[in-house]
């Protein structure tokens, strides 16, 4: 039995006036998965999130949550979604306790005690106006409120932006607990590649409004390799020959004093041998290296 994906974009195209923001983005997030959307500033991440939350209407294509068009059925969908926005958007004079009471009265089911317990555990003063809390605490309040409705889907738009390392770890820990406890689906956009590496099931990379790739993190890490070999000069690279380079098909090449490093997708031992680099050292690539290679270097994924 195939269940409907919790998050679904099909040919999503967004624009601000004449300025395009997203071009034909399609992705799916199955229930229980953690999907990390990566991309540089201005790549369209926040626009995508706004489309997913029914806050902006697509020019073309559609955005669906739980199988329903979210622009048309926003209120119904939001009952099952918890949102942590990029910048805190609570009314500044509101306290966390007031916010919980307010959201509770608007939601079909609300775990007020859970919200209070979470805030107490994180030592956030529930009576203080949120504008007076630290940025990290404001994010925790936002997360607590997002989880208060016991959502099936959690959407976090760059939640670690502006957080110090301790606050960042606190956030991930709360998120992990939530995943362990309820197995919610998570859609998170982030710059924190190292932090998300342990969490994400599936990864998408957005670049100038297009989805460069969209695959399970494990498969992505299995595909890419860093191939290093020593050279005495730039002519050695040229000496590899275009066929060899084509066999290797690197996505990004960096040179330093010790030699050359190539980021290779679709790595195979045969390809390596064909390039005459059978003795090169081959190691895995971190998510950050893959991201930098794809977004900085020539795009050949």
């Amino acid at each position: 039995m195939t269940s409907i994906p919790v998050v679904q974009c099909a040919g999503l195209t967004m624009a601000y006036g004449r300025r395009p923001a997203l071009a034909g983005v399609s992705l799916e997030v199955p229930a229980g998965a953690v999907y990390a959307l990566l991309g540089r500033n201005g790549s369209g991440k926040s626009t995508l999130v706004r489309a997913l939350l029914g806050l902006a209407r697509p020019r073309a294509g559609e955005a669906r949550l739980f199988g329903e068009d979210v622009w048309r059925h926003r209120a119904r969908a939001m009952a099952r979604v918890g949102v942590v926005p990029e910048t805190p958007d609570l009314p500044p004079a509101m306290s966390a306790a007031q916010a919980s009471a307010f959201c509770g009265r608007l939601a079909p089911a609300w775990d007020g005690a859970g919200v209070a317990a979470r805030l107490a555990r994180l030592q956030v003063d529930p009576a203080m106006p949120v504008a007076r809390l630290s940025r990290g605490q404001q994010t925790q309040v936002a997360l607590a409120l997002a989880l208060g409705g016991r959502p099936e889907l959690l959407v976090l738009d760059d939640p670690t932006l502006g957080l110090d390392p301790v606050a960042r770890q606190d956030l991930y820990r709360e998120l992990l607990d939530e995943l362990a406890e309820r197995g919610s689906t998570v859609f998170i956009t982030t710059h924190d590649l190292a932090g998300i590496e342990g969490l994400a099931d599936r990864v998408g990379i957005l670049h100038q409004g297009r989805l460069l790739l969209d695959e399970p993190l494990e498969a992505l890490k299995a595909r890419f390799r860093q191939v290093r070999w020593a050279t005495s000069g730039p002519e050695d690279l040229a000496a590899l020959g275009p066929e060899a380079l084509a066999a290797l098909a690197p996505v990004a090449i960096t040179r330093d004093a010790f030699g050359v490093q190539a980021l290779v997708p679709g790595f195979t031992a045969e390809g390596l041998a064909a390039a005459g680099l059978a003795e090169a050292s081959v190691t895995g690539a971190s998510l950050e290296e893959i991201f930098m290679g794809l977004v900085n270097g020539e795009v050949q994924a």
């Binding site: 939350l53 029914g54 806050l55 926003r74 209120a75 119904r76 939001m78 009952a79 979604v81 949102v83 926005p85 910048t87 958007d89 609570l90 009314p91 959201c103 608007l106 939601a107 079909p108 409705g149």
Partner: peptide
């Protein structure tokens, strides 16, 4: 300011 998002992600009509 973008704070309208706080209200619009609630399960209530516009």
């Amino acid at each position: 300011s973008g704070r309208i998002g706080f209200y619009l992600v609630r399960p209530v009509s516009v």
